[in-house]
Write a protein that binds this DNA or RNA. Structure first.
Lengths: 225, 225
DNA sequence: ACACAATTGTCAAAACATTGTAAATTCTCT
DNA sequence: AGAGAATTTACAATGTTTTGACAATTGTGT
């Protein structure tokens, strides 16, 4: 999955972008200042960076130059306040691939991201998906079992989606934790089990003898459609 | 067919756009100044307006504001001579949906038109629209419930419209904010809840047990006609 | 087959997060 | 200035996730 690193201190922008980009299949990671941003860039190796110029501590220009030096091919989109009518040429020389002035619409930015990455958007598991008497519409976030709607919680849905995307493969708890729960989140392993429990109770005919959500002892779980 | 109203005094632009847009299946109507433009807007009910800022007689800003007031959901794309950032901010506040600076290529404008219409899902809500005992006329901005008129405010209307255009789909607060509230606007998410509250109170039989405006915990809202 | 260790299933309480709601405040038009 | 709308605030109500105890199960070495 495409990982985007957003280096920006305005939390409202985090919120505004987070949802849209995740809906469109990007993983958006956020860093609130330049130092954290550079660190995150090195640690997470994103496939694209969105960088605010007006950052606390380290100026955005520095960050831009540094990222560009370490990863010359990594696309960078720069955000700048409308006030500082900056030098576009200078930005491009620092390694930026495009720039957007605030205020901007999340969708405008998304369009630029698409343009810059120019990468086909693969619809991996997209709806509708079905197994047994269960059918899942990921787009609408609805799941029905023999026609009747079954409410799933957010985490259950995420887990279901991940299983659907990786059928028949054994998936470890650690993998589920990082893929479904997110990187910076380390709940007890019991958490995963409990969610599997709910999935079984909601989707298996006999929850104590699961047919679809199988456990592979000592390794993890396997989804058999 | 999608009807576009072009309010622009430069005849060369008329010519350049007319041909391309009609080839692409849009009906392009032209008004050469602001007064004629407003009249045409009222008479022809276009599904999108392309508006030049530097108009004779009535300034484009006025026209934009007026159109936005009468039809808050009608997409407006603004053309302006200079890349003046102040204008961009102002325009978006006046209700423009996108902004193209001259000189531009007709194809670029076409792309923006496509983007804006797709975003607005304009085609997918026919007016009058009806569900349950409610019927909505989005063009006249009127809503009746079992025949009796129910006054909705602007935001409520916009939200209603967005829900109607996206039935059954889970819509997050962020999506509502960026689609209904607009570009450079990041109100608290509680704002959305309060508007949902009003919609429920005005349109649900039992506002505390909504049937149409459902909440999907942890994700957002879903409209079920 | 047996005991033992490690892993997993299950439940319910606790911790946490999200949402509903009304009232207060700010904003925007007249 | 005043009315109505939009937004924020504050808190209550609700729903979800995590945790930890314990039971049940599986795997391993003898």
């Amino acid at each position: 999955m495409e990982r985007i690193l957003l280096i920006e201190d305005d939390r409202r922008i985090h919120k505004a972008l987070k949802h849209l980009f995740e809906k469109e299949g990007y993983a958006l990671e956020v860093a609130a200042d330049g130092a954290v941003g550079l660190e995150a860039f090195r640690a997470r190796k994103p496939s694209l960076v969105i960088l605010d110029l007006t950052l606390p501590l380290v100026p955005g220009q520095e960050v831009c130059r540094e990222i560009n030096r370490q990863a010359p091919t990594l696309p960078i989109i720069v955000l700048s306040a409308a006030a500082d009518e900056l030098d576009k040429v200078l930005m491009l020389e620092l390694g930026a691939d495009d720039y957007v002035t605030k205020p901007f619409s999340p969708r405008e930015l998304l369009a630029r991201v698409r343009a810059v990455t120019r990468r086909a958007h693969h619809a991996s598991v997209e709806s509708p998906y079905a197994f047994d008497d269960v059918s899942v519409d990921f787009e609408k976030m609805q799941l029905t079992r023999s026609g009747k709607p079954v409410p799933l919680t957010r985490q259950e849905f995420k887990a279901m989606r991940y299983f659907a995307a990786n059928p028949e493969r054994v998936i470890s708890r650690e993998e589920l934790l990082s893929e479904v729960w997110g990187y910076n989140c380390y709940p007890t392993t019991r958490t995963v089990d409990n969610h599997l429990l709910s999935l079984r109770q909601k989707l298996e005919k006999d929850p104590t003898h699961p047919v679809h959500f199988l456990t592979v002892h000592g390794v993890g779980y396997r989804f058999a459609p």
